[in-house]
Simulated scan of single mutants.
Amino acid sequence: METVAGNFTKLQQQLQKKQKWFLLLISSLLISTILILLTVTFSSGWNNSASTTQLLFRRRQQQQGQSSPRFAESKLAKTETFAGKLPRLAYLISGSAGDGVNLKRALKALYHPRNQYVVHLDLEAPVEERLELIRWVNEGEKVFQEVGNVRAVVRSNLVTYRGPTMVSNTLHAAAILLRDGGEWDWFINLSASDYPLVTQDDLLHTLSSIPRDLNFIEHTSDIGWKEDQRARPVIIDPGLYSLQKSDVFWATEKRSVPTAYRLFTGQYGCKTLAV
């Protein structure tokens, strides 16, 4: 009797499990059917609405005699920036001792009558080399004299790589170009060892469609590792007080990061135009 009762109990449990699975299956089928019906109904309504909208839009176009939609951009007046006017570039080409020949080569390759140029050989270059460059700019090339867009820095600066004298030399050239070079749009700083990868005609044509207030300087206030390697070290530039060129040297002490203003760092993309 106990065996029969146990078998009966197991049978009841199995039937209950089957009933649960059957109910779950029926519920899933009902939910799936409802979702399919809703999807079909929504799609039909959307297609009908879209067709009605397109039909009304076409009728309105036919009534107004239009063959294509009108956009607000077509009503905007084009600025001078996008009117196809060629820009003007201002170049600084600088070098040191023994760079006179390469500097001339770079200037000839970069020359264009629309642009403005300043060339500079620093104090490390012999006096004869600097004077020869000045004579070549002022007397050697007739096109420079006729157009008048090339200037040589007569009072040369002593420039130390990675030092503040490099920045001051760049600002000196920019000041000359702003004073004597008329109106120009972008300033490009190159060295005598650079050489253009594209012609000036192609470069000016490419830049003609770019807004004049756009620059190519990638800068950020997230300086990361440069805070400890660039911002805090104290460096001394011998070019500020000596006539003998030498590398900058680093002080053993480090300064604290300023709190009155935020430091930015970055790089400019003009070097992509030359090698």
Score class of each variant (00 low, 15 high):
110 L>K: 02
110 L>F: 07
112 H>K: 05
114 R>L: 05
116 Q>W: 04
118 V>A: 05
119 V>H: 04
119 V>D: 05
120 H>Y: 00
122 D>E: 06
126 P>G: 10
129 E>I: 15
129 E>N: 12
130 R>N: 08
130 R>Y: 07
138 N>R: 15
140 G>K: 10
141 E>I: 15
144 F>N: 00
145 Q>I: 15
145 Q>K: 12
151 R>F: 03
152 A>F: 07
155 R>G: 13
156 S>K: 10
159 V>I: 14
172 H>R: 09
174 A>Y: 06
174 A>G: 00
175 A>P: 00
176 I>W: 00
180 D>E: 13
180 D>S: 04
187 F>H: 07
190 L>I: 10
191 S>P: 02
193 S>R: 11
200 Q>L: 08
203 L>C: 07
207 L>V: 10
208 S>I: 12
209 S>A: 15
213 D>C: 04
216 F>P: 06
216 F>M: 05
217 I>N: 14
218 E>D: 10
220 T>M: 00
220 T>L: 01
222 D>C: 06
222 D>S: 10
227 E>H: 03
228 D>K: 13
230 R>F: 15
231 A>S: 09
231 A>C: 09
238 P>F: 01
238 P>M: 01
245 K>H: 11
245 K>R: 13
247 D>T: 12
248 V>C: 09
254 K>C: 11
256 S>A: 15
